[in-house]
Amino acid sequence: MSGPHQYIALVSSLPNLGKLFSRKGVPISGFRLKQRLSMLEPAHASLLREMVEVTAWAGVAGFDRDIDVIRRANKVLADLQAYPDLQHLLGARMETRTLIAALRRRRDGQENAADIENWGMGRWCAQIKANWSDPAFGLGHFMPWVGEAHRLMQAGDHIAMERLVLTQVFDQLGHYGNLHEFDFEAVAIYVLRWVIVERWSRYDEADARARLATLVAAALAGQTEDGKTNGGRQAGRQDLFSDFTSALEGAPS
């Protein structure tokens, strides 16, 4: 099997992910997904790996500085030259991430976005810089979720915030997914959506709250136990598509 037929078989072999938050687990395990993705052309598999690396938190967590993530994202954008929809998708994803990073930095007391070139990318950098004091950075009229995210972040409702952001990203992927059915783009979008579903499926609200309380207690006590815990989890997280580190747990923005 080759060419378009290969992708028809591959896409048809992937189970429907359904709506976000609608199920407890993932419809296909990471192991099985990797098995199915062996049908990808080697060049496509490499591109997909790059995309996952810059979009999934597990991949981003491997970078020490935000500027490194931006450089990497720009390289992946250049590599995706033959796939304009994936380029737009990745660009939109990085813009979403920039907005969340800006919200987080503002919450943490940063007074302006003068250095946004070092931690943000995309169309909204100038807008964010010019409207730093506006709750939605002047983007609330066509991206209402930014204002809502600001409100949730101020309220400290991290789980609702996580839900809002995942919904936003999932819908973004769905928009581009509607443009492709049996091609590499369709597979890439499926994998990126799977990463989100997988992440949410591992997200246990009670466990997350308990862990947050433990981390806060440990930080107050000056312990390093949380570092050990994180390290242990990261070590067990070698799967290419695993991505359940919360966007709000302090990974690079």
């Binding site: 099997m1 378009p4 037929h5 290969q6 028809i8 078989a9 591959l10 896409v11 048809s12 072999s13 992937l14 189970p15 296909i28 199915r36 049996f182």
Partner: peptide
Amino acid sequence: CALGGSAAIGAMLD
């Protein structure tokens, strides 16, 4: 038939 068959083979995996 090749297009339909490819989809059928993929669907059988799932």
